[in-house]
Design a protein around this nucleic acid. Structure first.
Length: 871
RNA sequence: GCGAGAGUGGCGGAACGGUAGACGCAGUCGACUCAAAAUCGACCGACGAAAGUCAUGGGGGUUCGAAUCCCCCCUCUCGCACCA
């Protein structure tokens, strides 16, 4: 590794080790970043929020990038005269704390709070402009108690339901697993075979908002297009029909089967009806037929994991039952149970039209069912060996013959409706949000189960339902469930013996409203109407793309639910969303293939890489996302310790556009560090000029520098507005270069007062426009120039002087037939005739034009002249 | 399979349809130094002695002029995926 600092003999000019803590203390003492819940100063508001961290132990580079981006926005907006809310907290509930408690034989709270303490210190060393007075952790009763109150409000509003649902049950851990925690049909921790089990669970009725959650995406114009698209796909609206097929012979009390389809136009091509293995009719059949039962059991065992579904072949079981067809008199269609039909989409049953659905085609081919085409493609023939799903004209379809696909959809629906066999229906992929988790380290669901009264919500005045502290993790299952006393209570209604709900909330609930709580973290009710009316929505939310669907959708739902239950006046939480890329690094492996940390690797002068201090050859691997398993992680704490927070921030901002993955390189950080020193040297040199009166007469050198300064202000402002931080950095490098140039000019003309004044102005401006990115260095430079003048953090963003940004001359490109052949210099705004005449006279151009007829002369003022010639 | 995004020097990347490669990193040469580091200066797409030619994944098109707009293709990344 190149080592910029340890090879430096003397202490650096700018000592971030003393300066950074100094300014952090000053900001803190002046409460620079503290805002009121409901400011009344009339300034516009701006709410900047980065996704709050899970307190895993240490911050990682992803956090550093996330919080640096947010901090630049926050500091910039503050300088622009906004009241800026920029809070921080902790997403503190979750399974890792329980696992750690199990391993260490301690308590989840201990581990969590240790981590919070450590990570808070690391974040504070980054010099973030955060209002720390608003900090909270979701594991505090002061927070989760309010969450319980919200749950009760939603309950009253009809947005909470208790219903049975199929879950992945781990019989060893005694808990429900999410789909992604089931690997090859086994629990990811216990390795036990997962069962599908029906369990009573709490649900938030997110589907009630499905239409508006989808429609409102159109208005989120400051969200990335792809996130809106992912959400739209997830919500998954589809239009079709519900069709009831009467069984030719009823099965017990089941007389018909309901099917959902988006292709009612292809009903004449139907050759089978298929049920999901969990469908009530399938279960009824299974109860009487051992073969059917065995098939159902096998389907269930294969589980619902994405991997299982992908690799599983289509299989079915012919039940022997038949249904009647709505349009074909006397037809009897066989009923199958099929493993590819999903119980939780539509009605759990489909009608199969093999000619026009690939899945049905596969299934029909396997079992020798008829394939009857009913749609004739508009062009060409029906494909061989696969289903045709495109547009066309109906055939073999009775009253639909000759109609197009769309027309016949409505015609079929109209007919079904008239017959009483079905109706048009809009369907949604989005499911209600199951929030029950059989865990200890989460927010208790504030409900009591009473044998007499049923499910009774805990009265608001008895909140919070606090987690008991005396729990152990020495046996599987939920500690709340086998706690000796905690769950036994008296029913709030009848005062009889009752038990608490021992499930806790999905931790996504905790992060679904924290942004609203930040507006008034001490408020008696969950959210303050006044504070959220002022601050909400979040103007700029920043985080990783991995939360594109679930977290953001849940937060959007919660905001609507809070609105519906009368607590908040907005319906969308995040007006602007920015999704940052990952931080990546080269990976290294030793001679034996083991992964090596970057700190263990040394690059030799000959380009080879070896294990530091040895001769062992190192293989430099791919650049990939930092991960513990690949050991290609860089510890932000070590970077800040060695280079300072400003250097880390600057490098992160400078490397590339923030939405892309960035590569962390040692040489890049070292370069950023050199720049901090260079800026400080410039500041020292300019500060040594002392007080300078601006003379009446300017000088060419002064004008040149002032032009660079004011152009930089304009360019950096524009870059920050558009999240082009890497461009802002480039413009600041250029200003620094211009200032170095001016220093040389000044050496040549020591008595140029105008230049001295311009240099001072350049430094003042540079300081202020660098401050959002390198806040500590900006304060130190400002202190050199104007000691005791106050903090840059409180300074206003500078305006640029338009009259100074114009160049004295512009270089106009001269083209012949669109190819650059020369340039001419002119004052901006020079008349076309003069410019064209000069362009024609330019020797190289004149040579090319000689003897040619000029057909056209294109002139774009101050930019280009192009001669089109003939022959 | 469907959807989205991206392909520009050795690398990260700039570029309202108007001088492609700003700025940084790496590199080369020089100054300073006994020497090194740091710093400062110059150079730094390819071919060519030069004039110039070729260059923004490939091929077409629009235009006086295309990295940028349109069509076709290729590659990569990400997301979704038996959703009826």
């Amino acid at each position: 590794m190149t080592d910029a600092i340890s090879t430096e003999p003397q202490a650096p000019r700018y000592d971030f080790r003393t300066q950074e803590p100094l300014w952090q203390k000053a900001w803190n003492e002046h409460a620079c970043f503290t805002v009121e819940d409901v400011p009344t100063d009339g300034r516009p508001k701006y709410y900047v929020l980065e996704m709050f961290p899970y307190p895993s132990g240490k911050i990682h580079m992803g956090h550093v990038r996330n919080y640096t981006l947010g901090d630049v926005v926050a500091r910039y907006r503050r300088a622009r005269g906004f009241n800026v809310l920029h809070p921080m907290g902790w997403d503190a509930f979750g399974l890792p704390a329980e696992n750690a408690a199990r391993e260490r034989k301690s308590h989840p709270a201990t581990w969590t709070w240790d981590n919070i303490r450590n990570m808070r210190g690391e974040l504070q060393r980054m010099g973030l402009s955060i209002d720390w007075s608003r900090e909270f952790a979701t594991c505090q009763p002061e927070y989760y108690g309010k969450q319980q109150e919200l749950f009760l409000r939603f309950f009253e509003t009809g947005l909470v339901e208790r219903k049975e649902s199929w879950v992945n049950w781990d019989p060893v851990d005694g808990t429900v697993l999410a789909n992604e925690q089931v690997i090859d049909g086994r629990g990811w921790r216990s390795g036990a075979l997962i069962e599908k089990k029906k369990l009573s669970q709490w649900f938030f009725a997110i589907t009630k908002f499905a239409p508006e959650l989808l429609a409102a995406l159109d208005n989120l114009d400051r969200w990335p297009e792809r996130v809106r698209l992912m959400q739209a796909n997830w919500i998954g609206r589809s239009e079709g029909a519900r069709v009831r097929f009467p069984l030719t012979a009823p099965k017990g009390d089941i007389a018909d089967v309901e099917v959902y389809t988006t292709r009612p136009d292809t009903l004449f091509g139907m050759s089978f009806l298929a049920l999901a293995p969990e469908h009530p009719l399938a279960l009824a059949i299974g109860a009487q037929n051992a073969e059917a039962d065995a098939f159902i059991a096998e389907c269930r065992r294969l589980g619902t994991t994405a991997a299982a579904i992908e690799t599983t072949e289509k299989r079915g079981f012919a039940t022997g039952l038949t249904v009647r067809h709505p349009f074909i008199e006397g037809a009897e269609i066989p009923v199958w149970i099929a493993n590819f039909v999903l119980m939780d989409y539509g009605t759990g049953a489909i009608f199969g039209c093999p000619a026009h659905d690939q899945r049905d085609w596969d299934f029909a081919t396997l079992y020798g069912l008829p394939i009857r085409p009913v749609v004739k493609p508009a062009q060409g023939e029906l494909p061989e060996g696969e289903a045709y799903t495109g547009p066309g004209t109906l055939m073999n379809s009775g009253f639909l013959d000759g109609l197009g696909v769309d027309e016949s959809k409505s015609a079929a629906i109209a007919r079904l409706k008239k017959m009483g066999w079905g109706e048009g229906e809009t369907n949604w992929r989005l499911r209600d949000w199951g929030v029950s988790r059989q865990r200890y380290w989460g927010c208790p669901i504030p409900v009591i189960h009473c044998d007499n009264c049923g499910t009774v919500p805990v009265p608001v005045d008895q909140l919070p339902v606090v987690l008991p502290e005396d729990v152990t993790f020495d046996r599987p299952g939920n500690p709340l469930d086998h706690h000796p006393t905690w769950k036994h209570v008296n029913c709030p209604q009848c005062n009889g013996a009752a038990v608490r709900e021992t499930d806790t909330f999905d931790t996504f609930v905790d992060s679904s409203w924290y942004f609203a709580r930040f507006c008034s973290p001490q408020n008696a009710s969950p959210v303050s109407r006044e504070a959220t009316d002022y601050w909400m929505p979040v103007d700029q939310y920043i985080g990783g793309i991995e939360h594109a669907i679930l977290h953001l959708l849940y937060a959007r739902f919660f905001t609507r639910a809070m609105q519906a239950s009368g607590q908040i006046g907005v319906d969308e939480p995040f007006a602007g969303l920015f999704t940052q890329g990952m931080v990546t690094h080269e990976s290294y492996r030793g001679a034996d293939g083991r992964w090596l940390y970057p700190t263990e690797v040394e690059r030799l002068a000959d380009g080879r890489s070896v294990v530091t201090g040895t001769d062992e050859q190192v293989t430099v691997g791919r650049i990939e996302a930092m991960s513990k398993s690949k050991r290609n992680t860089i510890d932000p704490g070590a970077i800040i310790e060695r280079y300072g927070a400003d250097t880390a921030r600057w490098f992160i901002l400078s490397d590339n556009p923030p939405e892309r993955d960035m590569e962390w390189t040692e040489s890049g950080v070292a370069g950023a560090y050199r720049f901090t020193q260079r800026l400080f040297r410039l500041a020292e040199s300019i500060a040594s000029l002392g007080q300078v009166e601006t003379p009446a007469e300017s000088s060419p050198a002064a004008r040149k520098l002032r032009r660079a300064t004011h152009r930089t202000i304009a360019a950096v402002t524009e870059a920050l507005e558009s999240f082009s931080f890497n461009v802002a950095v480039a413009r600041l490098y250029e200003l620094a270069a211009a200032m170095t140039e001016a220093e040389k000019d000044a050496t040549a003309a020591a008595d140029d007062k105008a230049l001295s004044a311009a240099r001072i102005e350049a430094l003042e401006m540079l300081t202020r426009i660098t401050a959002p990115m390198m806040p500590h260095l900006a304060e130190s430079m400002n202190d050199l120039l104007h000691a005791g003048s106050g903090l840059v953090a409180n300074d206003a963003w500078p305006d640029f002087d338009d009259s100074l940004t114009a160049a004295e001359t512009v270089t106009i490109a001269v083209q012949v037939m669109g190819k650059l052949r020369g340039t001419v210099e002119f004052p901006p705004g020079s008349p076309a005739e003069a410019v064209i005449a000069a362009a024609e006279a330019e020797p190289n151009v004149a040579r090319l034009l000689e003897g040619k007829r000029i057909v056209k002369k294109v002139h774009v003022p101050d930019r280009i002249v192009n001669f089109v010639i003939a022959g």
